[in-house]
Every structure is written in structure tokens, then in C-alpha cells.
């Protein structure tokens, strides 16, 4: 395999692997809380970070991390406090982040619209040695958080009020979810690009839940699908000259369609098995429900 002997492809595949793990791992909590598009919002804000990185002549990935984390914290605060007109505030944040990125990039002498587009759409084969170090450190944080605190984060996303009454530090954990999502965006931006980051957080989860029944298997299957599409998409983009981000996302959508098509016969078979076990019998058992009081 000559592909594995090239240093830039080694880096690309490692980055792809880490993105395949981390994006669905945090995405599952966002989907559970029906905040599937939060990753997209952070992606827009990250652009300001990238632009700022160009302007300050600093590493765009670290500057973007800081800006994303700040943006995600603001989004979380808007979510938890300002219910009213929260959508308008978010819109301001998203488009402000996007416009800010374009503006800052044009002001800097290093950045150009061409270099900005490597962040927008991903350019996995240009991942540098410093980038890969940052990606590894950030990915480790995401994995430790999403796996280590899975029961706590699950409970918060399932029923926040109940989680608060168990005495969990819910506000802190909510901020942690937001920060982790922000970090994942910066991990993924070189691989799939800021405009497609959210796809990798959401689509593997949506695809796997077509055939899964529990949170644990959905988590595992989402990560599995994530890794499958990022690694094979990156490999494909090496052999056929196509952009990695778009290849990965289209493969994920393809898997979603296949699994959805498979899910219908699967559900039918499950239902058939259950029906075979339980035939209607008229033995009067459980009839008392019929006499239940009718509420006034």
C-alpha cells in the first residue's frame, strides 16, 4: 500500500480517523437534544477564528478553537436563558461569524479567499505536522469527555429537569457539551471543512439509528459509520482526484439511504416475530382496564 508510505497521507488518514470518531461522538448528544444544527452554527463562528488566525499570523486551528469555544458558550447561554428571541440571537451569531471570517481574512496579507476555502471545504492532504498534533490533543479531549461522561450527558440530553434533580452539575455539563462540540468543529475543519462539519456530526447518527434500538449501540454504530466514511472517503480522494470533505459527506448520505432501506424489512421481521409469539386470546385477562374511570 503505497498510500500508507506517504507522510502527508499518513497524517491525512490519522486526521480522518480522529474526525470519524469525534464528530459522531459529540453529535449524538446534539441530535438527542434536537440541536442537530448547533455544529453548523459553530462552524460559521469558527470562520472568524480562522480569519483572526490569518490576521495575527497565528495557527488558525488554535485561534479557531478559542473563538469556537467562546461562540459555543454564548450559544449555550442563549439556549438556557434567553428562550425568547433566541433564534434571532443565534442568527446574528452565525452570520456575524461568517462575515467576520471573510472580513478578517481579506484584511490579513497571509490569507486569501483560496486559503479560506481550504477551511470551508476541507483540504485533508494539506494537514501539516503542527495541525496533526493539535488535532490529536483536541480529539483526545473529545473522546474522553463523550465516552467517560456518557451516562451523565445522556441523562441531561434525555431529560434535563430530571438530571438537575439528581444533583448533577447540569449547567457545567451543558457548557462542557458546547465546548466539546466547538473543539470537534476545529478537529474536523481541515478534513471535511467548516461548511460540512455538522453533516459528520449528524448523518452517521441519523443513519445508525435507523437500525439500532439503544443509545449505546447507536453511539457505537455512529462512530463506526463515521470512521468508515472518513477513512474510505479520504482514501478515495487520494486515488480519484476529488475533494475529501464532499466525498465523505456523500458517502455518509449514501449509507444513510442504504440503512433506511434496510430498516423497513428489519422492523417488519421484528414485528413478525413478536406477532408470532403473541396471539390474541379472549381469556378475560387484563379486562379490568376497560372499566377504568373516565376522566371528567
Amino acid at each position: 500500500m503505497e498510500i500508507l508510505e506517504l507522510a502527508f497521507m499518513q497524517r491525512a488518514l490519522l486526521a480522518a480517523l480522529l474526525v470519524g470518531i469525534t464528530a459522531p461522538a459529540i453529535g449524538i448528544y446534539l441530535v438527542q437534544r434536537r440541536q442537530a444544527l448547533m455544529g453548523d452554527g459553530i462552524g460559521h463562528v469558527a470562520l472568524t477564528g480562522v480569519g483572526l488566525g490569518f490576521l495575527l499570523n497565528a495557527s488558525p486551528i488554535w485561534v479557531a478553537t478559542v473563538v469556537c469555544v467562546l461562540g459555543a458558550v454564548v450559544m449555550e447561554l442563549i439556549r438556557s436563558y434567553g428562550r425568547t428571541r433566541g433564534d434571532i440571537a443565534l442568527a446574528l451569531l452565525f452570520y456575524g461569524g461568517m462575515a467576520g471570517g471573510v472580513m478578517l481574512t481579506s484584511l490579513s496579507d497571509r490569507g486569501s479567499s483560496a486559503s479560506l476555502s481550504t477551511y470551508l471545504f476541507g483540504s485533508i492532504t494539506t494537514v501539516s505536522r503542527e495541525d496533526i498534533l493539535a488535532i490529536c490533543v483536541l480529539a483526545a479531549f473529545v473522546i474522553v469527555t463523550t465516552v467517560g461522561l456518557r451516562r451523565q450527558l445522556f441523562a441531561i440530553c434525555q431529560d434535563e429537569e430530571f438530571a438537575r434533580v439528581t444533583g448533577l452539575p447540569v449547567r457545567l455539563l451543558n457548557l462542557l457539551i458546547a465546548v466539546t462540540a466547538a473543539v470537534t468543529v476545529t478537529v474536523a475543519m481541515r478534513v471535511v471543512g467548516l461548511l460540512l462539519v455538522s453533516a459528520l456530526m449528524v448523518i452517521p447518527v441519523a443513519a445508525s439509528q435507523q437500525i439500532t434500538r439503544s443509545f449505546a449501540t447507536t453511539f457505537a454504530a455512529s462512530v463506526g459509520i463515521g470512521v468508515l466514511v472518513t477513512v474510505s472517503g479520504t482514501t478515495a480522494s487520494y486515488y480519484v482526484d476529488v475533494p475529501s470533505g464532499a466525498t465523505i459527506v456523500l458517502m455518509a448520505i449514501g449509507l444513510f439511504v442504504v440503512l433506511t432501506a434496510l430498516a423497513t424489512p428489519l422492523a417488519r421481521r421484528r414485528a413478525g416475530r413478536a406477532a408470532a409469539q403473541e396471539q390474541c386470546t379472549l381469556d378475560g385477562k387484563g379486562r379490568s382496564t376497560a372499566t377504568d374511570d373516565v376522566r371528567v
Binding site: 449524538i28 441530535v31 438527542q32 437534544r33 434536537r34 442537530a36 451516562r151 445522556f154 441523562a155 440530553c157 434525555q158 431529560d159 430530571f162 438530571a163 439528581t166 447518527v205 439509528q209 439500532t212 434500538r213 439503544s214 443509545f215 449505546a216 447507536t218
Partner: peptide, 14 residues
Amino acid sequence: GGVPATVREVVLSG
């Protein structure tokens, strides 16, 4: 929620 969860997983939150 937006993701499947089993009865056991929900009760474990308790």
C-alpha cells in the same frame, strides 16, 4: 429524545 434509548438506559439515569 432524538436518539433511540432503551428502558434500561433511561432507568439507569435514576
